[in-house]
């Protein structure tokens, strides 16, 4: 199994490169359009920049297509990296921050690529790939010791349940990241009405759709965590900080879902709640750094 662990690390390196390349391409796409829009506004008095303006500028568009290509490669390589590591460890990615974050990069890129395909928009790529790239840099900054597959301590020896618990968490966090990207663009769109961005309706829908995947998943995370805590400690809820941080995140998205049926809240205010929600996700994700409690050995050190 030594070879599998090594192969997993190699594939992670490949995924990191693909993420970095995708990030560059999506950035070129975004910056290229911003520049073009400026020049278009500056040079042409009568001409308005609309969605069809791309006809004259194949440059940024092909950058975005390369972004998608690299994005898919990132998802594939990260997925294979997670898979080979799972083969070596016979369990899901839950024993330390390295394997958890690696799986997060996989699901984040995959979820984004699926959203990109479904909605046929590539403008979210710049934001999502920034998050993915940040995760990759974080992964490289972790001590190399964590690249090894460790045996489980007795409390974590509940493979099926822990694998499900953590997988659901990763899916939830990844979809929340997509909704975060959509919310940022939505807020920009609402103020600036940028022609090359997708319509506000679509951005709003991407944000909402992503949350409708993530919200039930996070509920599942809380429930599976309770079942595990019940089996391991005899208490399904102990007000452990990481538990309550996840609950807080869930409640924020609960607020978001309710505001969507409120006149005057749907739109800008809902989008702002999505931003708060993602900050909460980050706090829950890195909670191990702030909290003691049962999740402390979740493997920061």
């Amino acid at each position: 199994m030594e070879g599998m662990v090594r192969l997993s690390f190699y594939l992670f390196a490949a995924a990191s490169i693909a993420v970095a390349a995708a990030w560059v391409c999506y950035m070129v796409y975004a910056v290229g359009f911003i520049r073009l829009r400026r020049t278009a506004l500056a040079t042409s008095t009568g001409m308005t920049v609309t969605g069809s303006s791309t006809e004259h500028v194949p440059g940024p568009m092909s950058a975005a297509r390369f972004g998608s290509l690299f994005g898919w490669f990132a998802a594939v390589f990260a997925g294979l990296s997670v898979l080979t590591r799972a083969i070596a460890s016979h369990r899901g990615p839950y024993s330390n921050m390295y394997e958890f974050s690696l799986a997060f990069v996989f699901v984040l890129t995959l979820a984004y690529m699926l959203f990109e395909r479904f909605y046929n928009v590539r403008q979210l790529g710049a934001i999502v790939m920034t998050i993915a790239l940040g995760m990759c840099l974080y992964l490289w900054s972790l001590p190399p010791r964590m690249r090894e597959v460790d045996a489980l301590n007795p409390a974590l020896q509940n493979r099926p349940l822990m694998t499900l618990h953590v997988s659901a968490a990763i899916v939830a966090y990844a979809t929340f990241a997509v909704s975060f990207a959509a919310a940022i663009l939505f807020l920009i769109q609402l103020r600036k009405n940028v022609s090359w961005l997708p319509s506000a309706e679509m951005l709003d829908d991407i944000g909402f759709r992503a949350v409708t995947i993530g919200f039930p998943m996070l509920a599942l995370v809380l429930i599976l965590g309770s079942i595990w805590a019940h089996q391991a400690w005899g208490a399904y809820w102990s007000w452990d900080p990481k538990e309550t941080a996840a609950l807080f995140t869930w409640l924020v998205y609960g607020v978001y879902l309710h505001t969507r049926s409120l006149r005057g809240w749907r739109g800008q205010r809902s989008a702002i709640i999505l931003l708060i929600g993602f900050v909460a996700v980050g706090f829950t994700y890195y909670g191990n750094y702030f909290f003691g409690g049962m999740h402390a050995y979740g493997g920061v050190n």
Partner: peptide
């Protein structure tokens, strides 16, 4: 949510 946040941060 705010109360949960206050309680959570208390443990940090």
């Amino acid at each position: 949510a705010v109360l949960v946040l206050i309680g959570t941060l208390r443990g940090s």
